[in-house]
Simulated assay, not measured.
Amino acid sequence: MTVQPTLDGTIPTPRAQQRIDDYETWAALIRPTFIEVAATGQPFLFWKVAREHQLPDPPDRDHDWGRFAAALHKDGITRTDGYGQTRDKSAVRRWRGTAAAQKGLVA
C-alpha cells in the first residue's frame, strides 16, 4: 500500500482497516477510548474522536454510531452537551462525560 505524505512532509499512520463484522465486537474494541475521553470532562464529537484515535468503522456505518452513542448515554458514561458540526457543517450532538465517568465510577 502506498501512503502519500501530508503537506508538512510527515507520513500519516495508516488507519486501522480491519473489518469487524459484528456490532458487539466493534463496540467492545472502541469503548475504552470513549471512556477515556469521557473521563476528561471535555466536550467531544464522536466523529472527531473516531478520526483522532483512528478507530475502525462499524459494521453498519449508518446506524451503529448512533446505537453506540445511545449505549454510552444509557450506561451513564456520557451526557449531551449541545451541538457541534460535522465536516460538511451539519449539526450533530456534542457529548461530555458524566460526573461518574470523570470520577472513574462507570466503565
Rank of each mutant, 00 (worst) to 15 (best):
T2C: 03
T2Q: 12
T2G: 13
V3L: 06
Q4L: 15
Q4I: 14
L7K: 08
G9R: 09
G9Q: 07
G9I: 07
T10K: 12
T10Q: 11
I11E: 09
P12K: 03
P12A: 04
T13K: 10
T13G: 03
Q17T: 08
Q17G: 14
Q18Y: 03
Q18C: 05
Q18W: 01
R19I: 08
I20V: 05
I20N: 05
I20M: 04
D21C: 02
D22M: 02
Y23N: 06
Y23C: 02
Y23A: 02
E24G: 04
E24W: 01
T25N: 05
W26V: 05
I30A: 00
P32E: 08
P32C: 04
P32L: 03
T33F: 00
T33E: 10
F34D: 12
I35W: 05
I35T: 12
E36P: 02
V37W: 00
V37S: 00
A39T: 13
P43V: 03
F44D: 14
F44S: 12
F44M: 07
L45R: 15
L45Y: 00
F46C: 07
W47P: 04
W47Q: 07
K48N: 14
K48R: 13
A50F: 00
R51C: 15
E52N: 09
E52S: 09
Q54H: 12
Q54F: 02
Q54L: 09
P59S: 06
P59D: 10
D60I: 06
D60S: 11
R61E: 07
D62Q: 05
H63Y: 11
D64M: 15
G66K: 09
F68T: 14
A69V: 06
A70G: 11
A70L: 11
A71H: 13
A71N: 14
L72D: 11
H73N: 13
H73C: 12
K74S: 08
D75W: 00
D75V: 03
T78E: 06
R79F: 02
R79A: 13
T80H: 11
D81R: 14
G82H: 08
Y83R: 15
R87P: 05
R87I: 10
R87G: 15
D88L: 05
K89F: 03
A91D: 15
A91E: 06
A91R: 08
V92T: 09
R93A: 11
R94T: 06
R94D: 07
W95P: 06
W95F: 04
R96F: 00
R96I: 07
G97N: 14
K103G: 04
K103T: 12
G104M: 03
L105N: 13
L105P: 00
L105V: 02
V106A: 01
